[in-house]
C-alpha cells in the first residue's frame, strides 16, 4: 500500500509543480487560472489517495467534495473578475494591471 501511496503523491507533486511553474512564468490571466486548476487537481488527488491508502476514504471523499465546491465558487468569481479586467484594460496581460509605478 505504501508503494501505491507513493505513486499517487509522486504524480500529484508533478501536477502541483506544473501549476506553480505556470503561475510563476506565464502572463495570461486565463492561463494563470488554468494553473490554479491544475494545482487543485493535484491537491484533490492527494486527499483521495491518502484517504484510500489510510482506510479513511469516506472522510476523504467528503473533504474532496467540499474542496470541489470551493474550487467552483472560486473559478466562477475569478473568471467574472477576469472578464471585468479585460473589459477595462482590453488585455489579459498581467503586466497591464501594474499601473501603480512607485
Amino acid at each position: 500500500m505504501s508503494n501505491l501511496w507513493f505513486l499517487y503523491v509522486f504524480f500529484s507533486a508533478l501536477l502541483i509543480f506544473t501549476g506553480i511553474y505556470c503561475l510563476l512564468t506565464m502572463r495570461n490571466l486565463i492561463k494563470l487560472f488554468i494553473a490554479v486548476e491544475v494545482i487543485s487537481k493535484g491537491v484533490s488527488l492527494v486527499i483521495i489517495a491518502t484517504g484510500a491508502v489510510k482506510n479513511s476514504i469516506l472522510l476523504a471523499q467528503s473533504l474532496a467534495i467540499t474542496y470541489i465546491v470551493v474550487e467552483v465558487s472560486l473559478v466562477a468569481t475569478a473568471l467574472a473578475l477576469i472578464i471585468n479586467i479585460y473589459k477595462k484594460n482590453k488585455s489579459l496581460d498581467i503586466r497591464s494591471l501594474s499601473k501603480l509605478k512607485g
Binding site: F33, E37, I48, I68, V69, V75
Partner: peptide
Amino acid sequence: RLGAPYAGVFEISVVAGLITVLF
C-alpha cells in the same frame, strides 16, 4: 478506481463539465 465514486462524479460533472464551460 480508488473507491471514491461520489468524488469522481463531482469531479467529472462539475470540474470537467461546468468549469470547462465557464473557461
